[in-house]
Design a protein around this nucleic acid. Structure first.
Lengths: 231, 231
DNA sequence: AGTTTTATCTCGATA
DNA sequence: TATCGAGGTAAAACT
């Protein structure tokens, strides 16, 4: 990631043509070759940009550009569509590079968070006599969605997904390994709960002694907070 | 404009809830209070953000946060919707501020301009034997989009709109009145060209002897600059 | 100013 | 891999 603050003008030719007159702006050059041109306002959308996959190259200046005071010209070309972005730099006011590494990415909590809340409230879905210990039970490698105790007092760890895939089973397996080393918890029963569980995930889970539980989101919503559905 | 590179985690609560685990990212703080959180990849869309109008405030740390190694917590709250973005900063790797000034903004060759360009290039859409005199033909009350000559040399004035409404017909009528006073041009035939022509506009135009022409933008784009479409 | 349409849309999910 | 639909859509055009 390279951050440049510069007086520049920009020309884009692609799906449409666009031009940015000379002004001071922030240029964000990402590791994948893409570039964003931001002003000090507006929304998250840049004034102009080039999406990956693309390549940036520095262009030789012609006499007109030199006479106009241009110091550098960057040409960013899209690998597939041949869209081009030309940045004419008149003055660089700041220039720094930073190693960011790969981002773990955004975790969206919509239905999944709601499912967790509902199952915690309606813990009887796990089986008769179950009671909630806590949501987001913290372990060294992250929080387990729900920790409960069954009728005989045995620990139950629940991983909740909207769509139950193999990844979710692997995740729960890691939690179970860790939790089963804790003498206060072991033995811990695993429950993989989801609105829909893929056959492969179910096979893997059951092979590992993890119980699968399909949740009916709408039905659980209907008795949300103990208030039965009106319809 | 303040640029910060930091190890941080981010939580957003608004229309949805979202969480960004601890990682190194770029924080762009704009003059209007808005904030963008970018990783070193993806497209122009930030991982997370807050749009203006919003305010940023620094929050006191609680014991848990201090114990976890948090150095600063920023809370950004939207002025209207009360959406909040909480940035927990563990380490600041870069921090710089820059005066950018007001941006003159993007100049776009929009769709209407593009339609004009396309029709000028494909002037045969006006009819066999037509040839372009010039685009943006200047008159005392403003430029006519296209001036052409038909097969017999008669002047043709074209008004182009994306959506052909009565206003456009009135506008063309004024131009025609003026141009028909010019002995070098008169008599001038009017053509009202648009992607879509409203029935009222068509009725008015034809009542005034103005020809209506519906343009197929996509088809015209397909032969843009003489380069035929590949599909 | 409120509403509708567009977008260099982006982005995820699905067949 | 192409296609479809939603988006914290945002932003422009139109009523």
């Amino acid at each position: 990631m390279r951050l440049v603050v510069a007086r520049c003008s920009v020309d884009y030719a692609g799906r449409l043509s666009a031009h940015l007159p000379l002004a001071t702006r922030v240029l964000m050059l990402k590791g994948d070759g893409s570039i964003l041109i931001h002003s000090d306002g507006g929304s998250y959308k840049p004034l102009n940009w080039m999406s990956p996959p693309c390549t940036l190259s520095q262009v030789e200046l012609d006499d007109d550009q030199t006479a106009a005071g241009v110091q550098q010209v960057w040409q960013v070309t899209h690998a597939k569509t041949a869209d081009t972005l030309v940045v004419s730099i008149f003055e660089i006011l700041h220039d720094s590079s930073h190693e960011l590494g790969v981002d773990p990415g955004l975790v969206k909590d919509g239905v999944e968070a709601h499912l967790q809340k509902l199952l915690a409230e309606q813990i009887e879905h796990l089986g008769d006599g179950h009671r909630l210990v806590r949501r987001e039970y913290m372990t060294a490698i992250g929080p387990v969605d729900i920790l409960a105790r069954d009728a005989s007092g045995g620990a139950v760890a629940v991983e909740i997904k909207r769509r139950g895939d193999i990844d979710g089973v692997e995740q729960l397996t890691r939690y179970l390994e860790l939790m089963n080393r804790d003498p206060h918890l072991a033995p811990v029963q695993g429950v993989f709960a989801a609105q829909e569980i893929k056959p492969q995930a179910r096979t893997l889970a059951e092979d590992r002694g993890i119980r699968c539980l399909v949740l009916d989101y709408d039905a659980m919503k209907g008795v949300d907070s103990g208030r039965p559905t009106l319809f």
